[in-house]
Write a protein that binds this DNA or RNA. Structure first.
Length: 255
DNA sequence: TGAGTCAACCGGATTA
DNA sequence: TAATCCGGTTGACTCA
């Protein structure tokens, strides 16, 4: 990998001997995944990020977002350490189940210790990590194909995007939540429209009833034709959708 | 400066 | 029992 050699970053120091996140060195095991990775690479994903030994992404992204990325120097108190600090003590333990290597966890633990020291000195305000457009694009594409990931897919995505598997997992969880929220909003709008239509229908029918009642009172009917119209004493219950003499359910809905 | 966005976290439920 | 999902929440960040 050429980019490993050409990489310039100060985070190398905090990554110990490797200089690269261990998960970056995890190679795919079967052809299917290999092809998947190649596909992603062909889409020219994260050329920049891939050459940044950035365990937490934040470092690379900070540089990317910096007005002068070439001369960008990570600030220990704000960018480097604080980005890493988004992985809290408790979650570093939780993340072990995500298949991260022990080496990564060691590095993380070390980083967390550094954060603790830093924050105890009152310099720490953790920095929010944001995915790059390219990363988001690939994740979105992947989400379109399948809104949940199996372990292989997750691993492949994480590797190709230089993200933790946990980050990919969290992104998909949040994405599903957003989708659901949007769908709920759509459903809600639809229901409101339905409700409005039913209300206006009900109003129109009530008006018709009143008109019919008025007609009946003005027309003098000979006694032999004086028939009681059921409409006067019956109505359609909107809740139970039945003709009732008087709705006894009180509008409480279906039972 | 408040509202909105989003990555990340937490705790509970479910499943293989 | 570990892994995963989900709903709710937090906190950093952006923008009008």
């Amino acid at each position: 990998m050429d980019h490993e050699v050409s990489c310039v970053t100060s985070l190398n120091l905090s990554l110990g001997d490797h200089g690269f996140p261990t998960n970056h060195l995890i190679y795919l095991h079967d052809e299917e995944q290999e092809q998947e990775q190649e596909q992603l690479e062909r889409k020219s994903i994260l050329k920049w990020d891939r050459c940044v030994p950035c365990l937490k992404l934040g470092l690379g992204r900070d540089q990317e977002r910096h007005p002068d990325p070439i001369n960008w120097i990570p600030q220990a108190s704000n960018s480097t350490v604080n980005t890493i600090s988004s992985f809290s003590k408790s979650t570093s333990i939780k993340r072990e189940r995500d298949g991260g290597s022990q080496e990564v966890e060691k590095v993380l633990s070390k980083a967390v210790i550094e954060i603790d020291q830093d924050e105890s000195e009152g310099r720490g305000a953790r920095k929010k990590l944001r995915l790059t457009n390219e990363q988001t694009l690939v994740l979105e594409e992947s989400f379109k194909q399948h809104d949940t990931l199996n372990r292989k897919q997750k691993q492949a995505l994480a590797t190709s995007l230089v993200l933790q598997q946990r980050q990919v997992e969290v992104w998909f969880q949040n994405r599903r939540a957003r989708t659901k929220l949007k769908q709920n909003e759509v459903d809600c709008t639809l229901l409101k429209k339905c409700c409005e239509a039913l209300k206006s229908d009900n109003k129109r029918l009530e008006k018709e009833i009143q008109e019919l009642k008025a007609i009946r009172t003005t027309i003098s009917v000979p006694p032999q034709f004086n028939i009681q119209f059921p409409a006067a004493s019956h109505s359609m219950c909107l809740s139970c959708e039945k003709i009732v003499s008087r709705c006894v359910s009180g509008g409480g809905g279906r039972r």
